[in-house]
Design a protein around this nucleic acid. Structure first.
Length: 454
DNA sequence: GCGATCAGAT
DNA sequence: CACATCTGATCGC
């Protein structure tokens, strides 16, 4: 995780570190176990170091994606045949033994550091000094291979969400998961067993500042399909899936139009080697086989690449075909309804359509986070991400937001007096917003943070 | 010198 | 658009 992650990315009280593989800040806090939630680049810092030599626990799909990881520059060199073999950034994490012609193996230097676990399968690990923890992986609804971690041991149970999207169906699945059911808050009719209360939830707070609800993924993709179906059947589409996590768009398009989708070599290689059977079969390498393209973003195939910039070619590909770009965005549920209405009218009028938006959020906004915490009522909530410039102000705000949803709320007062601000503050959201406004407005966040820390 | 880390822009 | 990614500057052995 980037700078600003609480506790240097450790899951207290365990010496387990998540999504950060750089050297520990001091020798006494060397992680006894490394966890990787998913392979987005801000979650794998330090793994590129050739000197990294620890076991890393992750999903099977994350292992596959990491070992096949190629940065764009390398993909580009390969595609233009300046380089026969592509350089896989993390190939040093798995080095096979050398096999001699007589079948004997030479092991020195060989290794296989990524330890994949199946989902929903509790597995025991021994930390140093004989401490045993049980680790269980759950799908996180964020991108292929992305998981949440449940860590259970003598120091209590902790749930680390990694990056996740806790939309309603996901929350429903949580409440039916046999490995998480012991930690559900239930109703207030009977007291909880203290051993069945999560010590902490390490929560994906990337979108905690989004206080309005956002469309479900199903809602976003079905609306997009409605719009796409209104356009002429001669239209070509470029789906700008610029990072892992927009696969729901590809799946919805593939299903609705009963077609494969043109993929670049790299994406195709990833999708055909991970566990989701729909993803495995949804792509084609044949660019002429489909009107729907998710090929290399900066090196699109001729069917969806811009033609020469003559006015006559406006909106056309090099093949002379009309192209519509599908761009994932974040958008409130309310704004999405308006956008759908307006865009349907525009298409009905015959307005030229250059692009369509699809509001596919890969992180939960505040209402979903509150609902998620409420069904578990842990003892603490720790944000997985903070904004470094706010010096902990956002953490303070989040404490106040989630306090009422804890097992035993501290009943933190939501006052503005100790902030020494003239702006009335009614709740923690406003306090966080205010902190940012003041930061941007040139005030000193450090002194503010000190004042607020009291 | 190079790799690792960071800041800033998209 | 986006909160992940790329780029170029800076740090450090």
């Amino acid at each position: 995780m980037p700078p600003g992650t609480p506790y240097n990315s450790f899951i207290r009280p365990y010496s387990i570190r998540v999504d950060e593989f750089t050297n520990s800040p001091d020798i006494d806090t060397v992680p006894t176990l490394h966890l990787l939630s998913h392979t987005h680049s801000d979650h794998i810092t330090g793994l590129q170091a050739k000197s990294f030599g620890y076991i890393v626990i992750c999903s099977h799909d994350a292992k596959e994606m990491l070992l096949r990881h190629e940065v764009y520059a390398e993909r580009s060199l390969h595609e233009h045949e300046y380089r026969a073999e592509t350089t896989r950034t993390y190939s040093h994490l798995k080095v096979d033994p050398l096999v001699y012609p007589d079948g004997s193996m030479y092991y020195t230097g060989s290794r296989d550091l990524l330890r994949p676990l199946a989902l929903n399968t509790p597995t025991q690990f021994e930390l140093t000094n004989n401490e045993i923890v049980t680790i269980t992986l759950f799908d996180a609804n964020h991108c292929p291979g992305a998981v949440m971690f449940l860590i259970e041991g003598d120091r209590g149970a902790v749930l680390h969400t990694g990056d996740f999207r806790a939309e309603p169906w996901f929350l429903e699945s949580i409440t039916h998961n046999p490995f998480l059911q012991p930690y559900l808050a239930g109703d207030d009719s009977q007291p909880r067993d203290p051993n069945s209360v999560l010590e902490a939830i390490y929560l994906d707070t990337a979108s905690v500042m989004t206080s309005s609800s956002v469309p479900t993924k199903a809602n976003a993709t079905s609306g997009l399909i409605d719009l796409m179906k209104m356009l002429p059947t001669t239209t070509y589409f470029f789906i700008n899936s610029w990072t892992w996590g927009y696969e729901d768009v590809l799946k919805a398009v593939s299903r609705a139009f009963r077609t494969q989708i043109h993929l670049d070599r790299y994406k195709h290689g990833i999708y055909t080697n991970i566990s989701d059977p729909v993803l495995r079969s949804l792509g084609t390498r044949d660019e002429a086989a489909s009107r729907f393209h998710a090929c290399e973003r900066f090196d699109r195939c001729d069917y969806v690449a811009d033609a020469d910039p003559h006015p006559a070619n406006r909106g056309l590909s090099r093949m002379g075909r009309p192209v519509v770009y599908v761009n994932p965005v974040t958008m409130s549920a309310a704004r999405w309804q308006t956008y759908l209405q307006e865009t349907k009218l525009a298409i009905g009028r015959g307005d030229p359509i250059k692009s369509l938006l699809v509001p596919l959020s890969r992180h939960s906004p505040l209402p979903e986070l509150q609902a998620f915490v409420a069904v578990l009522r842990p003892r603490r909530v720790v944000p997985n991400t903070l904004i470094p410039g706010l010096h902990g102000l956002d953490w303070k705000g989040m404490d106040r937001i989630f306090d009422p949803l804890l097992d035993q709320p501290l009943l933190l007062e939501q006052t503005s007096a100790d902030l020494d601000l003239d702006i009335p503050v009614d709740d923690a959201i406003t306090e966080m917003d205010t902190a940012i406004i003041n930061l941007v407005g040139g005030h000193d966040a450090t002194s503010l943070a000190e004042k607020w820390a009291e």
